[in-house]
Amino acid sequence: MLTLFTINTCKSFGCRNLGLPISASADYSWPDYRLGYPALHCRACGSYPPLFDEQQFNEWLSAHLSAYASENGHFCPECYCNKTICYGHNPRGTQRVQCRVCKKVWTPKQQNQRKIVPPERIETVPLIVPFQGRSAEQKLYVLLSFDAASGNILHISTNFTQHYIGETLRYRWRGNIEPDLHHSNIVTRVDMRETQFLRRSQFDEIQYGSAVLKRNARGAILRPVIAAHGHFRVLSLLFPDVKRHVISHECFLRGAVITVWADLFRQRQGELWFLEEEINDSDINIPWNFQGTTQHGWWQGQWQLWVQKKNRKMVCSLTGGVSNNAETLSLTASRHFIQWLYQQTIFTHSAQLSAGRVTQILHSLAHDYNEKRVIKETGCGSQK
């Protein structure tokens, strides 16, 4: 039986319907075309989140999660429960795992996995990476999530998928890329990005560039919003109780995080922050100075401006988080990894490789990066 995942739901913090599926609230009406696209109208808070084809989403996500679980063994590929035990070995001597809930037994492809330590704060940013498709310089949408304290990579995903997808989940390039925002004034940059959201056909329908696979290539390119829901669903199964999230300034990342951890946010036990940074000197080690607040965008979010000599950051609480926490927030973990990533020759040649191969390389490099960090921190490297 297909496990149902909620994607069509109210995504407004503070609303009584946050995270509740269509069948669970009399406040919903659908489809509503008031904003020019089919939406779910929540009468309790007045929001209009876009509607998705839930059957197609569930079919893809079930395959995505089962494949991840079979590969890594961190949760069950059948019921997705993260309570597992070692269950002997197969005839080749490889460790088997059993789910404590549904009793499913399987052999993870990756063995000797280090125990995952739950993070106090997850930091997530996107990255656009070129690949070789039907023509040169096709682009993948990549999501990177980190333990903000340790700097370890928790999960990497791209919007390339090997699984079958319905047509409503497929990324459609319309030839009108959203411009990169490099305004010298960080406050203006935040405002421009909010304006950019409003210019989309719907809030989550990003146009980030062409992403056409080679003719007859296996797999497909997902809409980034779908990839984001899959990305955070994996993280929520690994870390169901994490309460603090920092994300790049992208509205559909907010929607995916708040949907996946809706129970915590509905109980007001979670914090979700937008963060925009401008780091000109990463060696500065003095306190940040608060400069004031401004309001931006459709939702008139309140952003705090902080300055640290040549560095500036804008922080926006999306779920009523403690304002004093803003000073400690950063995207340092992602910045360090991305700098390291561009020093890796195999990555810098991604434009010559297929989308599937680039995805594999990113996972491999993430593993190497984490391993090198462990060796550096513990001093366990071999000596010759």
Rank of each mutant, 00 (worst) to 15 (best):
A326F: 08
Q383W: 11
Q196H: 09
Q56G: 08
T332G: 02
L341V: 03
K376C: 07
A262M: 02
L275C: 08
R100G: 08
I153S: 01
Q111W: 05
N152D: 13
H74Q: 09
H182N: 13
H245M: 11
I186E: 08
G297S: 07
P118N: 04
T293L: 10
E123V: 02
F203E: 13
E167R: 08
F75D: 04
Q110R: 13
V125R: 01
Q343N: 14
L35Q: 14
N185Y: 07
A24T: 07
G356Y: 02
R114Q: 14
Q95T: 12
F146L: 07
N112K: 14
R223T: 03
E327W: 08
H245S: 05
V242A: 11
E205T: 00
Y48M: 06
Q56K: 05
K243S: 14
A211M: 03
R266T: 11
T107C: 15
E54Y: 02
Q56N: 03
R199V: 00
S23C: 11
W261Q: 07
V322W: 10
A262T: 01
W30L: 15
S23Y: 13
I122Q: 11
P91T: 12
P91C: 06
V129Q: 01
H296K: 14
S70A: 12
E250V: 01
E137H: 02
F75E: 06
Q308P: 09
C102N: 09
Q56R: 04
D32V: 09
G356K: 06
V190W: 05
Q383E: 12
I338N: 02
D27A: 08
Q302G: 00
W173I: 03
R233C: 13
N82K: 07
R134E: 05
L238Y: 10
D204L: 05
F290P: 05
H155D: 07
T359P: 00
L272Q: 07
V125D: 06
D241S: 13
V225D: 15
V97D: 02
V225P: 04
K109M: 12
G379A: 14
R200T: 06
E276W: 04
N289L: 11
E194D: 14
I153G: 01
K115C: 09
F265H: 04
A136G: 08
T348Y: 02
K139E: 01
Q302T: 14
I85Y: 11
C45F: 13
P21H: 10
M314P: 02
C251P: 02
I128T: 04
I122W: 13
L329F: 11
K313A: 12
E278W: 04
P49G: 07
I156V: 15
F131T: 00
W306P: 03
R189E: 10
T319A: 15
F52E: 10
A326W: 08
A217E: 15
H231F: 03
R233F: 02
L353G: 00
N325L: 15
N280P: 03
N324P: 00
Q308I: 08
L140K: 00
Q56A: 12
D283H: 11
K103I: 06
E178Q: 15
T328H: 15
Q132L: 12
R193N: 11
S135I: 03
L329Q: 09
G93W: 05
F290I: 06
A227T: 07
T195G: 12
A44D: 13
